[in-house]
Design a protein around this nucleic acid. Sequence first.
DNA 1: TTGATTTGGAAACGGTCATTCCCTAATTAA
DNA 2: TTAATTAGGGAATGACCGTTTCCAAATCAA
Lengths: 207, 207
Amino acid sequence: MTDAILTSEAKTRSRGRPREFDMDAALDAALRVFSERGYHAAAISELTEAMGLASGSIYKAFKDKRGIFLAAFAHYRKLGRRRLEAMIASAKTGREKVFEMVMYYTELSYGEAGRKGCLVVGGANDFALLDEEAAAHVVTAFAADEKLMADLIRIGQADGTIPKTVDPDAAALAFLCFTKGLRVIGKTGRSREEMLSAAEAAMKLVT
Amino acid sequence: MTDAILTSEAKTRSRGRPREFDMDAALDAALRVFSERGYHAAAISELTEAMGLASGSIYKAFKDKRGIFLAAFAHYRKLGRRRLEAMIASAKTGREKVFEMVMYYTELSYGEAGRKGCLVVGGANDFALLDEEAAAHVVTAFAADEKLMADLIRIGQADGTIPKTVDPDAAALAFLCFTKGLRVIGKTGRSREEMLSAAEAAMKLVT
DNA sequence: TTGATTTGGAAACGGTCATTCCCTAATTAA
DNA sequence: TTAATTAGGGAATGACCGTTTCCAAATCAA
């Protein structure tokens, strides 16, 4: 409920006893619990244990269970976006950038990491019809991914690595479905090789 | 736990008072609740209301909440598979069959139906790390879809409507991810037109 | 009929969950 | 120093949830 939740950057010391725990570490722990168990199955007692905080402390730092989730969700998005943009930046052509984005999700979608799943995909499942505001955050997250992918496709069309015949918006939505589907299938524990083969096949979307 | 749960076909009358409620209708109601709210957020009280049964009756017909879900899940799969196979049968070429399968999921992924989501995708989220046996049912459901899609692609390669250069297994997994992703994105309430454009784009997977 | 068996349903039960309370500790403002 | 404020934490709280119990009703076997 304070700026600290949103930015997790320390700033001008406020009055009263200062926070002792590390917000980023606490949110890391919280998102781990929410990813593994889902929102509704995650008990406060599990969150307190994972975060290393008593329930009273958690309820003082966040408004309620929903508040913990929304903070963890924002944290998760910030971290993910940072890693994703780093991968995209390392690629030269538009087509390679598209491939890097596909690979970013592919590498998260097998083995143990895959089984833990995606907080955004999980959020879509847990909140779509139950919590309008939380659902709006999920929509925002998907929209950001979709827009980024469309931008990368247009870059590829500008640099000649992706045909002009491709409809960037349609292909971006198809990629969005594909990558979120990767995360769903990843929860069933597939191998890296299988997921890589699917990712390569998906690149046909930009031919 | 009886055959009736699995087959929902009436058969040789057993001893004792006969069941009064319609199993298919009850499972329809149950899967509606589970789809809309997810497994953990679905309360028994909601199930009793939707199914028109008292909790005692439900617990006599099913073992527990998990048993209700598993029965609804099997029911959902049976209904879905029936509709899917009908759509595929109406298509002539292998490529058209692939398209019909993609369209089957596309038509479930927008508007109100899309918002309700898929019980199998939801199950992957709700059970992957929490219930090994239930998770195995999810794996089976995905595997059936994946195998069917691979078969359709091979039919297309045999009748010349899909290039031999396509790897059927890789493309089938890519389609599986795409269609399950459609169901995830569908929970955020997209339009039919958008989803159709993505579905058309996805057909590039078999070019 | 009678007894055994099974279903239907309402009420009761025990446990767990999210949340609050309250006291102590640490800090700033005056 | 003192007062005000905020964090930490453990115990208490109240609600709800899944499940069980118990009794009446309906059927079959004898």
